[in-house]
């Protein structure tokens, strides 16, 4: 296993958010973490990224404990894309994406590949028109793309295995932007052999784009497998309670979770 969590547990104060998590992700795998609000998804992501030290257990990257890497070295192959960020100063989109090169810079600030890599990441995500605009003036979807470009710029010149961790990349995006982001993510990362682990709320997107789902519930990993194996009536009831149906379309193998209203919609 390339990225591997063993017996990971974590708490904030006396609130336990994760217990006894054992997961492993191989090179090139794409995985979605799903679960209800407060299930511990973002915390698990932070622990896998090495920016939160778990209270118990450990995470290894290629056999070495994450905590044993100098942070800058770790940051060259593991990138975390946060949900959204607010930037208090008027950095341009280009300057924001360029921040991805920080861990790649030498002690004297040298990074000969930097400008080319940043330019490529910007083109890849269609941010060309916004290059010199303030990051803070972008829409939610554009900001998300800029953060993804930053992450690509951060890890794309690193030889060997790399992993991209994303926290709710499609939150607050309209359907068009959701699809565009997912396509970008899966196709670009797939082409470069980057491992992806993403937290997703949307089960439909998760089932559609990811061959493997991990289900977190109240800090525990309760299911881990293909969408077909994981999205069962029992699992859905455990996570969200009753009031859902699972539709299996004949044309595809992908299950769809649908909300069932308790009372029929009033008709005019």
């Amino acid at each position: 296993m390339r990225l591997c969590a063993r017996g990971v547990g974590h708490c904030f104060g006396d609130r336990v958010v994760l217990r006894d998590i054992d997961v492993g992700v191989e090179v090139g795998e794409t995985v979605a973490i799903v679960g209800a609000n407060g299930a511990g998804k973002s915390t698990l992501l932070g622990i896998l990224a090495g920016i939160i030290a778990p209270r118990s257990g450990s995470v290894t990257w290629g056999g070495t404990r994450l905590g044993d890497f100098p942070p800058r070295v770790r940051a060259r192959s593991i990138a975390l894309v946060p949900q959204d960020v607010s930037v208090p100063f008027d950095y341009t989109v280009e300057e924001i994406v360029d921040l991805g090169r920080l861990p790649q810079r030498s002690a004297l600030g040298g990074d000969p590949e930097g400008p080319g890599v940043v330019r490529r990441a910007i083109d890849l995500l269609g941010l060309g028109p916004f290059l010199h605009q303030p990051f803070a003036s972008l829409s939610g979807g554009e900001r998300r793309r800029a953060l993804l470009a930053l992450a690509f710029a951060q890890i794309s010149t690193t030889p060997g295995p790399r992993v991209l961790l994303l926290d709710e990349p499609t939150a607050h995006l309209d359907l068009g932007h959701q699809r565009a982001l997912m396509e970008d993510l899966v196709t670009r990362a797939g082409a470069e052999g980057i491992t992806i682990v993403t937290v997703l709320h949307d089960l439909a997107l998760a089932a559609l784009y990811f061959p493997r789902l991990m289900v977190l519930h109240a800090g525990r990993l309760i299911a881990d497998g293909t969408p077909q194996a994981v999205l069962t009536e029992a699992t859905i009831e455990t996570i969200y309670g009753t009031g859902f149906s699972i539709e299996r379309h004949a044309s595809s193998e992908i299950p769809r979770v649908a909300i069932v209203a308790s009372a029929p919609r009033p008709r005019p």
Binding site: G46, I51, I78, L80, P82, S86, L147, Q154
Partner: peptide
């Protein structure tokens, strides 16, 4: 933000 700064090493 702190999360991003931390993940940048």
């Amino acid at each position: 933000g702190e999360e991003s700064a931390a993940q940048l090493g």
